[in-house]
Amino acid sequence: MSLTRLCALADLGPDKITRVEVEGRSPVALALADGGAVAFDDTCPHADESLSQGWVEDGRIVCAVHFAEFEIGSGKAHNAPIGCGRLRFYPTEIRDGAVHADLAD
């Protein structure tokens, strides 16, 4: 497992979604949930909008643009427009106060 450092845990806030640029791949989004940090693709699987405009509500990531909701962990889509796929989540680990994720394919 190869971990990529994304940001300091202190940079994350309740309910909000933080976008992190990662060299060589599409941006990753981070949010606080389940007592820790969760990492997922920032690009909404529906229409390429940034999920960092959205928020966390009742265990789901909510896209602010067309209001699809994704279950944290499984990424299963609810209330989504036609053609919206599953949101991909990545395993995370906190090391030295920073959030790391395994972004391997």
């Binding site: 909404c44 529906h46 229409a47 909008e49 602010a64 643009v65 067309h66 209001f67």
Partner: peptide, 23 residues
Amino acid sequence: RGFICNYHGWSFGIDGRLVGTDG
């Protein structure tokens, strides 16, 4: 969550800002 126009999918947040279109 916001208000989406049925015509071309322009999507507005509850604060009125345009947050996206068709994407």
